[in-house]
């Protein structure tokens, strides 16, 4: 994901802003990291460049 995506994504549960913690970047993109809700504190993984913004109870299953 590009960092500009931060402008339009939010916590799927309470719609508050997310804070980005990037672990791996490549060519301007965030490949892995974590998005954390600034309100409820729930964290969401970014894997292979794709943020997984499903609520925790829907997150598993591939």
């Amino acid at each position: 994901m590009k960092e500009s995506l931060m402008e339009i994504v939010c916590c799927p549960m309470d719609k508050h802003d997310l804070e980005l913690d990037a672990d791996e970047r490549d060519d301007g993109e965030i490949i892995s990291g974590t998005l954390t809700c600034t309100d409820c504190g729930e964290s969401y993984p970014i894997e292979d460049g794709i943020p997984n913004l499903l609520p925790p109870d829907m997150r598993d299953g591939a």
């Binding site: 994901m1 590009k2 995506l5 402008e7 339009i8 994504v9 939010c10 916590c11 799927p12 719609k15 802003d17 292979d48 460049g49 794709i50 943020p51 997984n52 913004l53 499903l54 609520p55 829907m58």
Partner: peptide, 22 residues
């Protein structure tokens, strides 16, 4: 999500529009 990203599309895993801001 992986197939869409392989096409070079910015992709978010979410249910419907749940994870997008107003």
């Amino acid at each position: 999500c992986r197939q869409a990203r392989e096409r070079g599309i910015e992709t978010v895993r979410t249910n419907l529009t749940d994870a997008f801001a107003d």
